[in-house]
């Protein structure tokens, strides 16, 4: 998308803020580097740990921020993390219909689709149709709970551990989990042939 006018605006605003001593170029570079560090790998690690360790699972569901901090994820100054557990009977799907609230501390920047009008409009009203965009089909007996992220929390999904993964260690389990699984548009799977 052409954004020449807004690029000029950004440059002008940053220059003025720098001259007034509010912001420096190095601060911006440093902040970008910190922000780029967060990715769905962090959320995947929380999930893998919860699948292996019942005490950690309990902590994650009771206080997501504390659980994240306990494995070294920086949560100071970021909105509290809430984690919602999927079961065979209940599936959570996270959306922000008002803007783009996203658990960035443990997933990184929100993907394009999460910010799109189509996702924001449809997820609350026709979640199964939305899930089909990802090829995700849940049994008709599974209840869907759509979580509209409107205020101070950021919500992440704890997916169901795929069958056949009994012998896998934390790294191998974390590798099964991606961004979509942590928002609820997809579910992690395990191909036994691997």
């Amino acid at each position: 998308m052409q954004s020449f006018e807004e690029e000029r605006l950004l440059t002008a605003v940053v220059e003025l803020l720098a001259e007034k001593g509010h912001v420096s170029a190095s601060e911006i570079a440093e902040r970008i580097a910190i922000t780029d560090e967060a990715s769905p790998r962090l959320g995947a690690r929380l999930v893998a740990k919860a699948w292996l360790d019942p005490a950690f699972r309990q902590l994650l569901l009771a206080d997501g921020s504390k659980a994240a901090e306990s494995i070294g994820i920086m949560m100071r100054g970021v909105p509290p993390l809430g984690v919602l557990e999927n079961t065979s009977d209940l599936h959570h799907l996270v959306v922000c219909t008002l803007c783009s609230c996203y658990p960035r501390a443990v997933l990184g920047y929100p993907p394009f689709w999460f910010k799109s009008p189509a996702y924001r409009a449809r997820a609350v009203r026709e979640p199964r149709a939305v899930l089909k965009s990802w090829g995700t089909a849940l049994p008709s007996t599974t209840r869907i709970r759509v979580v509209d992220s409107t205020a101070d929390y950021r919500w992440m999904v704890l997916p169901v551990r795929p069958a056949g993964t009994d012998g896998l260690n934390e790294d191998a389990l974390a590798a099964l989990v991606d961004e979509g699984d942590l928002i609820g548009v997809t579910i992690p799977s395990f191909d036994v042939a691997n």
Partner: peptide
């Protein structure tokens, strides 16, 4: 309950933070 929000909604719970 989504059925209480839209006549044509798929059945679902809708969970929202409200002040």
């Amino acid at each position: 309950a989504s059925a209480d929000l839209w006549v044509d909604a798929e059945p679902a719970d809708i969970l929202v933070e409200i002040f």
